[in-house]
């Protein structure tokens, strides 16, 4: 469990005003990250995700508010790795040390037996590379080393800041599987990303921020429903009336489309297919249409995107 209460971080001195150097990177954030779920921490570039995570881990001092990890401020924990593991920046490892030596240093600080070092090396599939110097590691290997470090103390809470950045498809799948497994074991998993598409397939719950402020804190389904754009199923059948009637009797919302198909809201393809079978309607086409989460995200964060690409393709601050 992670509890964030009124967390605020201002960089630069002075009051917030035009021309002042002050930046409110995180602005009065309050949310909980609960166990047993993968919580996606979502926001455009510069929204304040990394800053929030750094404050949760006691690396940066909040301007106001506080964050608790397993009920305590992280910076007061004696054996923090047994409580929470985090991967913030996979590049932040001494290049001259081997991956295994790195893990041994970390283990020593928290009284973790060396046996566990070899376990996590196996778990993340670092294998023989663990004995080579980090200097020669690929990005993917560094991510794996960072994740191994986070897992070292077998913690109940895990924070990953954009762990899929720069990974190939295999790597992305691996991270997805891993966080799912960790959450299924009952752990608290907070996973940041600036891509909705990434979260759609990974997270159970979303905390969406923009310009340091909370925009949404809800399950993926709730986020969708809140915007009235749930999952849709498109079905083509010669018995339009029969099927539409059966669907309506199940309290599903059905819209006819211009090309004679039916669009069913809030149902899965399985449900619609089963209902069609019950009423003996032949199904010629059945497809789920759900690209809308991305759209919902864009709608939600649209006002708060700090950097927009102008027509001349240069980055401007809006």
């Amino acid at each position: 469990m992670i509890e964030v209460r009124g967390l605020t971080k201002q960089y630069g001195a002075g009051r917030l005003a035009h021309g002042s150097s002050a930046v409110r990177a995180v602005d009065d954030l309050t949310f909980d990250v609960r166990p047993g779920k993968v919580t996606g921490f979502l926001g455009p570039n510069g929204a304040g995700k990394s800053t929030t995570m750094r404050m949760v881990l006691g690396l940066d001092r909040p301007t106001a508010g506080r964050a608790l990890v397993a009920g305590r401020p992280f910076a007061t924990l004696d054996e923090p790795l047994r409580v929470a593991g985090a991967l913030l920046d996979a590049q932040a490892v001494h290049p001259g040390r081997s991956g295994r030596d790195h893990l041994r240093v970390v283990a020593r600080t928290n009284g973790i037996p060396v046996r566990r070092v070899d376990e996590v090396i196996d778990q993340v599939g670092l294998g023989p590379a663990a004995r080579r110097r980090v200097k020669g590691y690929s990005l993917g290997m560094r991510q794996r080393l960072g994740i191994a470090t986070a897992l070292l103390g077998d913690p109940a809470v895990l924070l990953f800041d954009e762990p899929m950045n720069g990974l190939d498809l295999d790597g992305v799948r691996w991270v997805r599987g891993l966080v799912r497994e960790l959450a299924d074991e009952g752990r608290t998993v907070l996973l940041s990303s600036h891509l909705m598409s990434e979260m759609e397939q990974t997270a159970d719950h979303l905390v969406i921020i923009g310009r340091g402020r909370l925009i949404a804190d809800a399950s993926i389904e709730e986020v969708l429903r809140g915007q009235g754009t749930g999952r849709k199923v498109r079905v083509r059948t010669p018995s339009v009336d029969d099927l539409a009637g059966a669907l309506l009797r199940r309290k599903l919302r059905v819209h006819p489309t211009d090309d004679g198909d039916l669009l069913v809201e809030g149902a899965s393809a399985e449900t619609v297919g089963d209902i069609a079978l019950e009423v003996g309607a032949a199904v010629h086409r059945l497809a789920e249409e759900h690209t809308s989460l991305e759209q919902v995200y864009l709608d939600l964060t649209g006002d708060s995107v700090q950097y927009k690409v102008s027509s001349t393709k240069e980055l401007v601050r809006s």
Partner: peptide, 19 residues
Amino acid sequence: TQEYASGSIGPTLQWTPRR
């Protein structure tokens, strides 16, 4: 200073957060 150059002071404070 090496830890500030490589950014590994962050991780170091994650495993020894009591400064």
